[in-house]
Design a protein around this nucleic acid. Structure first.
Length: 609
RNA sequence: CGGGGCGUGGCUCAGCUUGGUAGAGCGCUUGGUUCGGGACCAAGAGGCCGGAGGUUCAAAUCCUCUCGCCCCGACCA
């Protein structure tokens, strides 16, 4: 093929004709296609659908389960390339950029400064924090050409702490908050739910640095409020729920949960006072038992009576008078959890109180090996097993407990007197309908999606990685840190989850990929001319319009408009144009007609509220 | 990692039980007719039936192994 000496053709950017090009082929990236580089101004350009790189689907791929994910795929926002790994296409990416912009504004409003830290990081950093060994398989590891160990960051605590210790010397430099919007890599055991749980995803992570815990306490609520603002602007009603701070300890922690049937978490909320908590951290009001004097223990024959229900009937007493003992096996051996008969053990709480992760209900073989009898297990007389007592058990006396012998129970068991308690704490799981500890209203439990998480890190990273500063007295102290995350991909899918109908997405105005869908139906010359003029006028007035100028049937165009779900639709067609009118329809409202000349004004009014 | 399901054209799926030249709808191309809710007619293009090995005269179909994807659970700082 002979080398090209020169080329000519129209130069275009998007749908804008920039001029005729004649010159060397260096800018040619394909037959008749020229590439010129223009610095993005941050503005969003209007677009013709005939030029938009996109595709909608009548049917969603079979792997899509949830409505929201189906719509993400059908509307052509993103597509999966491998399990938990996605490509965002132009429509979807515009939504991402809109979400990013909201987040930037709210983070900057509370003093945040945007930074950008690498995803590829040396293993040493993670060895310093201890997470290189602590995290077994979720961390992607690799080597460079010199066989040095690297990781792909799953979060950026190490990197940000490294940055802080390199910059901060004095309390005078504190406090400050930095944030970034960056890719995270996690080798998830099971990616799922489309954009819900990914192996590669985008997170806004923020870190604040303080000289004292008090200063972190002062700042923390600002972040919580900023988060609520962000979700609200994204069209979601997210609750800030008390969260399990996890095995790493720490005190204050909130999860920002969007109630959804497809959620992975369970959130307890009170309709009365607004209390909200992750089930793993939630507390409810317990039935109060009458005060009694401790009585002496007494064995009772209970032939084949094992369950609390049967025992309650046998003894003619409520389930709250029994002491239920559940045995779990963990990394460091068995754990016996003693709890009142009317309550259930929450595993996360038990893990926290016992200090043992990886707990599983022990199977029958394990019980037998430990010399225990299923149905009659009791903390009384247990040896070599860690005993955890729920506070419900230590606050009252005279429970009926198992006898650790077949067909035997013991009356009047008192914690501490009749069995040793290694740890006491709240390990009870809140039940649907249980009374709220604060106001007494019945609690409800819903599934929900965790969109954001804030917590007070404290000294965990600054202490282990040596990020210290000199205080007023000249003493060297580790920096007090807070850390705050939002998952953007799942936020996008949640916006769809919370804003759609049977026909498609209903984008909240602030995150919509375009503001206005301009659709020409069955265009004749007059209709085309009117639509073209409207499109140009919209652009000139600064509206992000998506103009469906495709040679498609009316049905296809209208279905696509509903599916893509822009906030306002303008239809230009012969039917209304012969009366000098166009049809305007909010995506979530009724259509009406206005004079062609008033269309933009009308649309503008709709978008303002 | 345990349990279950599925891999056949871009998408949804049939064919597999009982081996015998690979199908439908949607989408795509071309021409014509239509023209306000995924139009119609005609003619086309497009498939190492996820991969490897085996059985057989013959494998999408039977057997073995493997890879991928989905769901439930475990896990999820």
């Amino acid at each position: 093929m002979p080398a090209l000496q020169a080329l000519s053709g129209w130069l275009r950017f998007g749908d804008q004709q920039l001029g005729w090009y004649h010159g060397p082929p260096s800018l040619c990236i394909g037959t008749g296609v020229f590439c010129i580089l223009i610095r993005d101004t941050g503005g969003f350009l209007a677009m013709r659908m005939s030029q938009l790189f996109f595709r909608t689907y009548r049917e969603a791929p079979s792997e899509a389960e949830s409505d929201a994910y189906k719509l993400v795929v059908r509307a052509g926002l993103a597509r999966q390339i491998a399990s938990g790994i996605f490509t965002f296409m132009p429509l979807g990416w515009r939504v991402m950029r809109r979400i990013e912009e909201i987040i930037r504004q709210e983070m900057e409003a509370i003093g945040g400064q945007e930074v950008h830290m690498p995803v590829l990081q040396p293993a040493e950093l993670w060895q310093e924090s201890g997470r290189y060994d602590a995290i077994a398989s979720e961390l992607f590891r690799l080597k460079d050409r010199n066989k040095r160990d690297f990781v792909l960051a799953m979060t950026h605590e190490e990197a940000v702490t490294e940055m802080a210790r390199g910059i901060v010397n004095s309390y005078r430099q504190l406090p400050f908050m930095v944030f970034q919007i960056q890719t995270k890599e996690r080798d998830e055991p099971r990616p799922r739910g489309g954009l819900m749980r990914l192996r590669e995803f985008t997170m806004k992570d923020a870190y604040s640095f303080h000289d004292t815990n008090e200063d972190l306490d002062r700042y923390y609520p600002l972040v919580v409020q900023a988060y609520l603002n962000i979700f609200k602007r994204c069209g979601l009603n997210v609750v800030a729920a008390d969260a399990d701070p996890g095995m790493m300890g720490g005190n204050d922690s909130h999860e920002f949960i969007q109630v959804s049937e497809v959620g992975e978490d369970q959130v307890v909320t009170c309709p009365g006072c607004g209390y909200a908590a992750n089930l793993e951290a939630a507390v409810g009001k317990l039935m109060v038992l009458p005060q009694e004097e401790p009585k002496p223990m007494e064995a009772v024959a209970t032939p084949d009576i094992k369950s609390i229900t049967d025992l309650a009937e046998f003894f003619k007493m409520g389930p709250e008078r029994f002491l239920k003992t559940m045995v779990f096996s963990g990394q460091n051996g068995l754990v016996a959890a003693a709890i009142r008969g009317d309550l259930e053990v929450n595993l996360a709480k038990l893990a926290r109180v016992s200090g043992q992760g990886d707990l599983q209900l022990a199977d029958e073989d394990t019980l037998i090996k430990a010399g225990l009898v299923q149905g009659f297990v009791s903390p009384v007389g247990l040896k070599n097993i860690t005993i955890i007592a729920d506070t419900s058990v230590t606050e009252s006396f005279n429970f009926v407990a198992g006898g650790n012998k077949v067909d035997t129970h013991i009356k009047n068991v008192v914690a501490g007197r009749d069995f040793r308690v290694h740890h006491t704490g709240d390990i009870a799981e809140v039940a649907e309908g249980q009374s709220c500890a604060a106001c007494g209203q019945p609690l409800r439990i819903d599934r929900g999606i965790e969109l954001g998480h804030t917590f007070k890190l404290g000294l965990k990273y600054s202490a282990t990685m040596g990020a210290t500063f000199q205080d007023k007295d000249g003493a060297s102290r580790p920096i007090v840190m807070g850390c705050y995350g939002i998952g953007l991909d799942r936020l996008l899918q949640s916006v769809v989850d919370g804003n759609h109908d049977a026909s498609g997405i209903i984008w909240p105005a602030e995150v919509a990929p375009y503001e206005v869908a301009l659709v020409s139906l069955n265009p004749d010359d007059q209709v085309s001319a009117a639509a073209e003029k409207l499109y140009n006028d919209l652009k000139e007035d600064g509206f992000d319009a998506l103009y469906d100028d495709r040679a498609e049937s009316a049905g296809v165009k209208l279905k696509d408009a509903d599916l893509i779900g822009l906030p306002v639709r303008i239809v230009v067609s012969p039917k209304t144009l012969k009366e000098g009118q166009v049809e305007i329809k909010p995506r979530n409202g009724e259509f009406y007609r206005v004079a062609l000349a008033e269309a933009i004004q009308s649309v503008s009014g709709l978008l303002k509220n």
